[in-house]
Amino acid sequence: MALGQYHKADSVLHRMDPRFKLVIAVVYMLVIFLANDAAGLVLVLAFLGVAVSLSGVPARLLVSGLRPVLVLVVFTFVVNLVFIRSGEPVVDIGPVSVTTGGLSTALFMATRLLALFVATALLGFTTSSVDLADGMEGLLAPFERFGVPAHELSMILSIALRFIPILTMEKDRIMRAQSARGADFETGNVITRFRAILPVLTPLFMSAFRHAEDLSTAMESRCYHGKEGRTRVKVLRPAARDWYAVAALALLGAALVALRTGAL
C-alpha cells in the first residue's frame, strides 16, 4: 500500500528538523490566506516553488500525489466561475454566463487551494512517519507542564501509523478467507455487495481490539513505563537551515501584510 508518500532522498528539506518543518508548513498554510490579490499569490507561489526545487522530489511524483485532490480544485474553480457575477461578461451561453470577475476569482481560489495541497504533499514527501511523530512530540513537549501527555500522544500516533498497513493486510486476508468459503464480493447490486462487506468488518474490529490487548501486554512485559528515563537514537537539534526557512517565511508573511495594507 502506498501509505506515507515519503520519498526517500537526501535534500535540504529532508534534513530539516521535523519540528520546524511542521510549524513552517502549518504557518505557511495560514499565511496563504493573507494573500488577496494576484501579487500576493505570486509571492506565495514563489515561496512554494523554491521549497519544491530544494526538496529533490521529482515533479512527476508531486503531480501524481496531487491527482486525488484535483477534483476538488476543479470543482472550486467551476463553482466560482459560474456563481460569481461581476465585471464584464466573457462568455454567455444561455443560462451560464462567465464574467471577468468570476474568472479571476475562480483562478485565484483554485490556485490558492492548489498551493495548500502542494505544501501538504511536500511535507509528506520529505518527512518520514517516524520523523513526523518525533516532531509532534518535540512540539508538544513544552505543553507537558500543563498536563499534555506529549510523549504518550506521539507514541500512540506511531502505533496507529504502524497498524494501518497491518490492518489493511488483515482485511485482505479476511476477505480472501471468506471468498474461499463462498463469500461473493464482486457480483450483485450495490446493496448485495454492501451486505457482503459487513461480515468482514466484525472480525476486523475483533482483531484490532485483540492487537490492542496484546500490544499493551507486550509493552508492559518489556517494562515500558512512559517517558521517564527513555533515551533516543536521534536527538533533534535545529540547524542553520531551519532558521533560514523561518526567516524566509517571516519575510513572506511581512510582504503579504504590506501588500494588504497598501504599504508596498
Partner: peptide
C-alpha cells in the same frame, strides 16, 4: 500531518482547512 488517510487518499492540513 499529511498522511493520506482522509477519503480519496488525501491528507494534510490543507484538507482540514479546505472546503470539506
Amino acid at each position: 500531518i499529511g498522511l493520506p488517510v482522509f477519503s480519496g487518499a488525501s491528507g494534510g492540513v490543507g484538507v482540514l482547512l479546505g472546503p470539506t
